[in-house]
Each structure stands twice: as structure tokens, then as C-alpha cells.
Amino acid sequence: MIKPRDPDAEAALEADDIALEVFIHALKLRHGYDFSEYSRASLKRRALELTRKFGVERLGDLIPSTLYEPALVREIVSHLSVPVSSLFRDPEVFLRLREEVLPMLASWPRINIWLAGCAYGEEVYSLAIMLAEAGLTQRSQIYATDFNDYALERAAEGIFNRQNLPEYRRNYMESGGQARLSDYYHARYELMRMRRELLERVVFAHHNLVTDGVFAEAHLIMCRNVLIYFTQPLKDRVLELFADSLVRGGFLVLGNKEALSATSPVADRFELVSATDRIYRLKRDGV
């Protein structure tokens, strides 16, 4: 038989579960950041990391900071989001964008691109490089949005750790890069700063997918590794927001492990471009 119950351990777990819900509620009521439809397992993990960062013992100890220390909210929100990427992450996706999607985008006189959840900006610069190499920069406008203000500031700075450079270089090559990656950054000590010219057609803005509406009329929306943190109803709502934001024939790119499932309410508004690279296209005839 399995072991007898340990009431103390189970009580501690239940207390943490309740503390997490109260913490989420406090963040929403006090600051308007709504994490209530985030998948709990990884959110709990990040909240527990936050307790260590703040030097407090229990999950519930985060609640007073949330309520009474407004200066900390930025840090809390920043820590609860997951801003990890790399330049040309999943290079095969960027290769397909370069070879199959950009030529289609080129048929529009003006190309609006929405990078939803741009985090520290790795994809902003990756995309800006590709647009430059395709000669499309002057016709493009990239809207890079995130709800994490700290991440937005970092993204605008465009400073990355050079320690990851071998990976970035390899990704760039595999994505069909036409120059040398070093043409696009200045190296300084252990850091690399992306060239400012790449931001010529980029606007950074605060936008929260959970609470905000249509941001722009877009020809391409990239939102990778964001939906994995959302529960199904929120995923469906955000996908609907994307469908409403795209022009007819516009493209949607999701993360490698995210799919527009057949059960999604907007599934029939899209057609599949690449199952492996999770690229979809809003149907031209609309609904």
C-alpha cells in the first residue's frame, strides 16, 4: 500500500495553493495585472522563485509586498513572465519565413508586423535583420509589444550576452542569413549591442494580451512561447484577437509547441501554411 497521509505536508501544500490564488487576486485588484488564467504549475514555480528573490519564506509573504509596496510591482510582474529567447531561435522557422512568407508579404505596399510578447527583443532584431536582407525595411513597421515594462526597456536597448554568440551565429546561418551576424552588432567586452539602425522601423509598446484589445492591423503576427502559459479559454481569446487583428491573407506564427487546435473557435478562419513551423494564414474570404 501507499504510505499513510502526512497531514502537515498536505496542509502546507494546500496553504501554498491558497496563497497563490490570493497573490494572483491581489496583483489583479491592486495593479490590474491579471494572471488568473495562467497555467498554475509554472506560475507557482515562478512565484516560489520570487519568494527566494525577495528573501521571504512562504508564498503568502508575497501578498503584503504586492499590496503595500507599489515600487515592487514591476519586479514582480517581470519575474512572473518568462522572457527567454535567442536570436533566430528555431532557425528553421525563420528560414521558412524568409523563403515563403516574406515574398508574400512583399506583395503589400506596406507591411505591418506585430511581435506580441517580444520579451527582451531577440525576435525583434532577428526579424529586422531579415527584413533588411529582403530589402523590405522601408516598407515595414514592426510593433513590438509586451506587458513586462522591464523587458520592453531591455528590448529597446538591444544588449545581449556574447556568451551565447556561438548559438546565435549558428542560428543565423541556419536561418538563411546572407551576411555575417557581426555586421549587425557592436561587441564590447562580454556584451553585444545590436546596431541602432535595426530599430529604424520598430516601435515598442506596452500591451497586455490578457486585458488589451486589437493593437494594429497586421500582415504578420508572431507570438511564440506565450500561449503555452495560458489556460485554454485565454488561449482561445488571444487567438481570436489575432484573427481580428490580421488583414485577410495575413500570417500568424506561433511557437514550436503551440498549435491552433481544431477545437479553437477561430480554427476555421485560418489555413495551415506549415505544421512543423506553426505558421497559419488568415483565409482571404474571411468568415
Binding site: S39, R40, A41, S42, R45, V82, V84, I228
Partner: peptide
Amino acid sequence: GGGYHLLVERAATFALCAGP
């Protein structure tokens, strides 16, 4: 799979995390 953390939610479904 590689590249993501794998978690199990209370409803016994899988979740992924692309964190560090």
C-alpha cells in the same frame, strides 16, 4: 521533449515552460 521544461497541472495535463 527538448528545449522546454515539462510540468504536470493539477488536472493531470501537461504544461510546458520555455524558461531558463
